[in-house]
C-alpha cells in the first residue's frame, strides 16, 4: 500500500464517519491484473478497498449523475476532478452535494498496448518498479519501459491534480508542460485520403458496444443521437462507414467538453485508440476559443457562448 493510498483511505473514513458524505466513490482492485473497478463505499469499515495506481483509468465522474440524492465524495485525479467541474458547469450536478477529494496522478497504463505486446500469453501479474513495467505470466517475465506504456493523453496532461478541489490528499502537482499540439500538427501533414484511411483502419474493428460512450463523463444524453430512431439519422451497423460517422459525431459532441481523461479508449474492448480525436477537439477549443474544460466553475463552455469577433477565416469569399 502506498502512502497516497493510506491517506486516501484515511480521508474517506473520516468523511464517512463524520457524516460529511454518504458515499465515497473511488477505485478498487479489479478482478484481473491492470484492472481497476469503480468502488462505492458507504461503510467506513470498507475503506481499505480503496486503491490508486497506474491501473485506475476510468473516469469516476461518470457515475455521479446516478446518485442525485446523495452527498458524495469522489476520489479525483486531475481528469476526474475536471469531469466533475465540467458537469457542474453544464448543470448536471449540484456542486453542494459533492466533495472533490483531489489526488495527484502519475498517468495510467495503456492496457491494450501491454496486451498487444505480450500477445497470446496470459498475464498473471503486473508491477511497476521505478521506470519499468514488470509483466509476469506462467512461464514468462518481461520488463518493459514504463514510459512507452503510459497513455498518450496522460503525457500531454496539464492537470495531474484537479484544478478545483475541496480536499487535497498527497502532494498536488503543478505541470510545467509546454503543449503545442505537435502530435496533431504532425498528423495533419497527411493528405485527406491518408487521414481518412488512418481512421477507417482504426475504427474498422469497432463492434459498437458503446463502452466508449458509456464510460465518458460528458456523454450523458438520455437518448444518444445514434439511438434516435424517429427519424433514423445514422446507421447502427458495425460497417466502417457507420462506425466512422458515429465516432465523428461523438467527437463533435464532446468538443469543448472532453476532459481528456482517455477513458473512452481505455475501456474499449477492441483496444481502439480514440485519443487523437480527443486531442484534436482539445486543440480546436483551446486555439479558437482559449477554452479548457473542467478547470473553472465560472467559464461557460464554448458551445454555450459566442463573441462578435470569433474567428471566421474559413468563410468563402466570392473571389
Amino acid at each position: 500500500m502506498s502512502d497516497l493510498e493510506s491517506s486516501i483511505r484515511e480521508t474517506a473514513k473520516n468523511l464517512l464517519t463524520e457524516g460529511k458524505v454518504d458515499l465515497i466513490l473511488g477505485y478498487e482492485k479489479g478482478a484481473l491484473p491492470l484492472r481497476a473497478a469503480p468502488c462505492f463505499i458507504t461503510d467506513p469499515t470498507d475503506v481499505d478497498r480503496l486503491v490508486f495506481d497506474y491501473s485506475c483509468d476510468l473516469n469516476l465522474a461518470k457515475f455521479l449523475r446516478e446518485h442525485p440524492e446523495k452527498k458524495l465524495g469522489i476520489i479525483s485525479k486531475g481528469c476526474v476532478g475536471r469531469g466533475v467541474i465540467h458537469l457542474v458547469v453544464e448543470n448536471q450536478l449540484n456542486k453542494e452535494n459533492i466533495t472533490i477529494i483531489g489526488i495527484p496522478c502519475q498517468g495510467v497504463i495503456n492496457r491494450s498496448r501491454v496486451i498487444r505486446k505480450i500477445g497470446e500469453r496470459e498475464i498473471l501479474e503486473v508491477k511497476v518498479e521505478n521506470d519499468k513495467l514488470l509483466v509476469k505470466g506462467k512461464d514468462f517475465e518481461e520488463s518493459l519501459p514504463l514510459d512507452d506504456y503510459i497513455n498518450n493523453l496522460c503525457k500531454t496532461c496539464h492537470y495531474k491534480s484537479p484544478p478545483v478541489a475541496d480536499i487535497t490528499v498527497g502532494e498536488a502537482t503543478a505541470s510545467s508542460l509546454q503543449d503545442n499540439f505537435e502530435d496533431i500538427t504532425s498528423f495533419e501533414s497527411k493528405t485527406p485520403g491518408e487521414k481518412m484511411e488512418y481512421f477507417k483502419d482504426e475504427l474498422n474493428r469497432c463492434i459498437r458496444c458503446y463502452a466508449c460512450r458509456e464510460a465518458c463523463p460528458v456523454c450523458y444524453c438520455s437518448l444518444c443521437f445514434i439511438d434516435q430512431n424517429k427519424p433514423v439519422w445514422f446507421g447502427k451497423t458495425a460497417d466502417i462507414t457507420d462506425n466512422f460517422i458515429f465516432h465523428m459525431i461523438r467527437a463533435l459532441h464532446v468538443a469543448g467538453r472532453c476532459v481528456s481523461c482517455g477513458a473512452c479508449s481505455s475501456v474499449c474492448p477492441m483496444g481502439i485508440d480514440l485519443n487523437l480525436l480527443n486531442r484534436k477537439v482539445e486543440q480546436i477549443v483551446k486555439e479558437r476559443y482559449n477554452f479548457e474544460s473542467g478547470i473553472s466553475l465560472e467559464t461557460p463552455p464554448p458551445m454555450g457562448a459566442h463573441k462578435f469577433e470569433d474567428g471566421q477565416e474559413f468563410m468563402i469569399e466570392e473571389d
Partner: peptide, 13 residues
Amino acid sequence: ALGCLGCGTCSYL
C-alpha cells in the same frame, strides 16, 4: 449494477 456501464461488451463478446 452500481459500477456497470451498461455497455455491450459482455454480451457482444
